[in-house]
Design a binder for these strands. Structure first.
Lengths: 209, 209
DNA sequence: TAGATTGTTAATCGATTAACAATC
DNA sequence: TAGATTGTTAATCGATTAACAATC
């Protein structure tokens, strides 16, 4: 149904999904592109264009079914099923991801966490126990792993990612400040928290001028 | 020196800064827009356009001084001075931010952390002790606070941000999955980790089609 | 000088917005 | 039916890329 979808549209999809979920819990059954646009600070035109990348789901003179559209976008995003995540790195970030309950609430379930630090291996993180990274390959062979969360130092991120790719991992959520080079067909989302702070700093400077 | 700078350019600035730092540690003294473009996967033309938003810093026939350009972009980003951050929320995210050493390494220093949970108040997070959120206003009056890190539930994020704005906080790093409405002149960067995971899920689905 | 590379203007490309016939 | 609102095409806007004179 969906042909080429631009990056700009993709980046807006999660916001659509979130607002539709909110509307649903507010008990709103139907919404027009105009109404949704006012809520999301987008033009009605843009909303219709975006939604129509995936086929017509509205009704003329009526608008969109909130529940129907939410479910539809959920399927497009792939959040209608669960994803098994393994975390590499038992530091602050790795632990925070493992302990958060907002990711499992959205279907992203952490199933294992690894580190190479003997001090950390064997210690508990929520329901999980940190495993030795030497057991990583074996684990992937024996279990379903959809996404690898890279919460490791820059120095080893690329090598580790390459190794995980050879083991068949096709999705990476990367917290290391590096642009990973991965083969065609491998999906990656970079978090780059540091860059967000720098952009914030820049905006604050601009405000002062 | 800088007039209007587009969002597209702003979002690339931290990557420029990072690559220039890397080049500097590699001992590279000079680089052309072509060379930097190959490294960053951008066109030479785009790099020259971007840099020239802030005034000419290159030399014809030579290129750019790595150290000079890094310093220049650092000043533009405002990372040539330190920023005092307070964290609201002593949960997983708040603690991870407080404990990370990569933020202070870039000049973003956490100076206090607050929570409203009596269980958490008084407990230590690295060098800091979690304070009662009721002391928040007083703290801001008596100390310099550049950035507030919102690591709180969605339900209280907007109200809290409004309050912080009245106390004079002008920069927000928001981890709550909500589009905060803040007055003109207040800078905000949203992290929205959940959305990143959803985009990753989407990309992985696309790959399978 | 000749070669390299910038800064900047022009051309292209893509994304957003506007307009409107179709229709619920 | 009349009003509302979609899906879609056309117009506009902005960002990226190409081209090239200036010059180190």
């Amino acid at each position: 149904m969906a042909g080429y979808v631009s990056e700009a549209v993709i980046k807006r999809l999660p916001a659509y999904y979130r607002h539709l979920k909110e509307l649903e819990t507010e008990g709103v059954k139907q919404i027009s592109s105009k109404g949704l646009g006012e809520r999301m600070q987008l033009t009605a035109s843009q909303i219709r264009q975006d939604i129509n990348c995936f086929g017509g789901f509205g009704r003329q003179g009526y608008g969109y079914s909130v529940a129907g559209l939410r479910e539809h976008i959920g399927r497009i995003l792939g959040v209608d099923h669960t994803h098994a995540m393994i975390i590499i790195g038992g530091g602050n970030i790795g632990r925070a991801v493992a302990l958060s309950d907002s990711f499992p609430a959205n279907g992203f379930q952490t199933v294992a966490i690894f580190d190479n630090d003997q001090e950390k291996i064997g210690t508990g993180v929520g329901q999980l126990t940190i495993q030795d990274v030497s057991e990583l390959k074996q684990y992937i062979l024996e279990n379903t792993v959809d996404i690898a969360v890279l919460a490791v130092p820059v120095s080893i991120a690329q090598e580790l990612a390459d190794e995980l790719v050879t083991c068949g991992v096709a999705g990476f959520w990367n917290f290391a400040p590096i642009d990973l080079k991965l083969p065609e067909g491998i999906s990656i989302v970079n978090v780059h928290l540091d860059e967000g702070l720098e952009i914030l700093s820049f905006r604050m400077m601009q405000g002062l001028v």
